[in-house]
Design a protein around this nucleic acid. Structure first.
Length: 270
DNA sequence: CGCTGACCCTGACGGC
DNA sequence: TGCCGTCAGGGTCAGC
């Protein structure tokens, strides 16, 4: 489920139940995630106080004095807060039980997510390669323009590359390219600075409004099913292959780009 | 170095 | 009803 707004919404939803709380124990029912959950993880985090819940790209960091729990939700993962007494269901792989009686429960049918440990000051290879946050000042049209020179990969693959910028997943890549009038297969290196400025602005705008809308569904993370669901994002392209373009009425085309379904309007996107 | 495709895994869904 | 292929919002990695 997670695109960046979902991850940020998750962070905001669980943080009040984690911040300042002491971890009683980690219960790992299934350790076979994207990478095996380190056997020593429980011992490392037990009795530690979670000082803060941070986000870097689509990674969540639960910071303690002796290191950080690094969590990724993969494709199907979710975190929610439940009472420690509540029985786990299918695919509820990990519990972070707090002394307070609250429990952070990790659910992930496809097991593409991960639970790892980060020593203080350690530069984890998963994080050190990441590009700028899309909502930061470091990310703008000039940045995209400069980085893309000489690149022949499709612009959609380019903006979905976490080394370029974090947090632009398949849904938002489709939407943002539609809004910007850019053909998803256009070579990244052959797009003007002006068009990259439009694209970067659209990325910021769409992600920002999705995060804002996520805030209104926060209660779903606590005690509920842990699914934020789709935000009330008005979809122009994603999932609309074969349907009429909301701008010109022509039929949207669907192709596959880097194993990802890609939808666009041949008329409005060049 | 940049790019492409295989792969990780389960579940839902459509066609037969 | 079952079986089969395809697809799903993540990312890494090998090989060219």
């Amino acid at each position: 489920m997670p695109e960046l707004p979902e991850v940020e919404t998750t962070r905001r939803g669980v943080a009040p139940y984690c911040r300042g709380q002491v971890v009683q124990e980690l219960v790992v029912r299934e350790s076979r995630l994207r990478w095996p959950v380190p056997p020593q993880l429980g011992g490392l985090i037990a009795n530690q106080t979670i000082q803060e819940v941070e986000r870097r790209g689509k990674y969540l960091l639960f910071r303690t004095a002796v290191g950080s729990l690094l969590v990724h939700l993969g494709m199907s993962g979710s975190l929610r807060v439940v009472d420690s007494g509540q029985a786990p269901g299918r695919h509820d792989h990990i519990d972070v039980r707090m002394l307070s009686g609250s429990c952070l429960r990790f659910h992930d049918p496809r097991r593409f997510g991960c639970f790892l440990w980060l020593e203080p000051g350690e530069q984890h290879p998963l994080l050190s390669q990441l590009g700028p946050e899309p909502l930061s000042d470091a990310f703008d049209g000039d940045y995209l323009y400069r980085l893309s020179r000489g690149r022949s990969a499709p612009v959609k693959s380019f903006i979905m590359d976490a080394k370029v910028v974090v947090g632009v997943g398949n849904i938002y890549a489709n939407e943002v390219l539609f809004l910007s009038g850019i053909h998803p297969r256009r070579a990244a290196g052959r797009i003007s600075r002006a068009r990259y400025t439009v694209l970067a602005d659209n990325i910021k705008q769409v992600l920002t409004s999705s995060i804002e809308q996520g805030g209104t569904t926060l209660r779903d993370f606590v005690g509920g099913d842990g699914k934020p669901g789709y935000f009330a994002l008005r979809l122009y392209a994603y999932g609309r292959g074969g349907e009429p373009c909301k701008r010109c009425g022509g039929l949207l085309r669907e192709i596959r780009l880097g194993q990802r379904t890609t939808v666009f309007c041949v008329t409005c996107q060049r």
